[in-house]
Design a protein around this nucleic acid. Structure first.
Length: 226
DNA sequence: GCGACAG
DNA sequence: ATCTTGTCGC
């Protein structure tokens, strides 16, 4: 089991991000879309009862069929602070991933990777800690600006940082529906991350991996809380 | 100093 | 994230 120490405060958390960011690998294309396994991870909270449940759902990338599901329960160890989301989610997510029998393959998580104030969001953090290829798909653009992509499925527009770097992409996964926001976490290219997202979001706006993980951790939280 | 701000 | 019913539409 991987032991993760929770930072004592915001300053320490930011220092950890600055240190780990150097270990992100950005020059690998990543696995080809539609082959092998893809694992979605998500977390649900009950701050009142101080309970957090993470879910990991392994899918066959070609058929989107569920191959394996796991769940992990923990305590809330860090508050939600924009830019520091990873410290709140990662301990329990790691537990869920480690309890899988299958190799997770490509991991898809909620939130961002490169598209982060310090270029080190949840997806990058999870990638560095596990060594796995990881990409992030968020429902909101966080602090980055973008021009609306075209209306057709597959259309995209760059998410640009202040320094001009394309840190992610607004990607239209459904005709005329609000785009999702894709960014690279670890060991995958942005082009490939978008291709994977599109393949996974075959029937809905969000990738099947995150939809399944979201449903599972919510159900597990209800059952753990009831 | 104030507001914005992934989940 | 979470609090939450019905409702419009494919």
């Amino acid at each position: 089991m991987t032991i993760i120490r929770t930072p004592a405060d915001e300053a320490e958390a930011r220092a950890v991000q600055d240190e780990l960011r150097a270990r992100v690998v950005l020059d690998e294309p990543g696995p080809p879309p539609g082959t092998g396994l893809v694992t979605g991870v998500d977390v649900a909270y009950d701050d009142e009862r101080d309970v957090v449940v993470a879910a990991a759902v392994v899918l066959d990338a070609a058929t989107l069929a569920v191959v394996e599901e796991t769940t992990a329960t923990g305590r809330v160890t860090f508050p939600y602070i924009p830019g520091l989301l990873a410290f709140r989610e990662i301990p329990t997510v790691l537990s869920a991933l480690e309890s899988l029998e299958n190799d997770p393959g490509l991991v898809v998580c909620d939130g961002y990777g490169r598209a982060h104030p310090r270029r080190f969001g949840l997806a990058g953090h999870l990638g560095v800690l596990t060594g796995l290829p990881v990409l992030g798909v968020a429902k909101n653009p966080f602090t980055f600006s973008y021009d609306p992509p075209g209306d057709r499925r597959g259309d995209s527009s760059p998410l640009v940082a202040d320094d001009g770097e394309e840190v992610g992409r607004a990607l239209r996964t459904r005709h005329g529906v609000k785009p999702v926001f894709v960014s690279v976490g670890h060991r995958i290219s942005l082009d490939n991350a978008c291709a994977h997202t599109l393949a996974l979001a075959r029937d809905f706006r969000l990738p099947e991996s995150t939809r399944r993980a979201d449903a599972l951790c919510r159900r597990a939280l209800r059952e753990a809380t009831a």
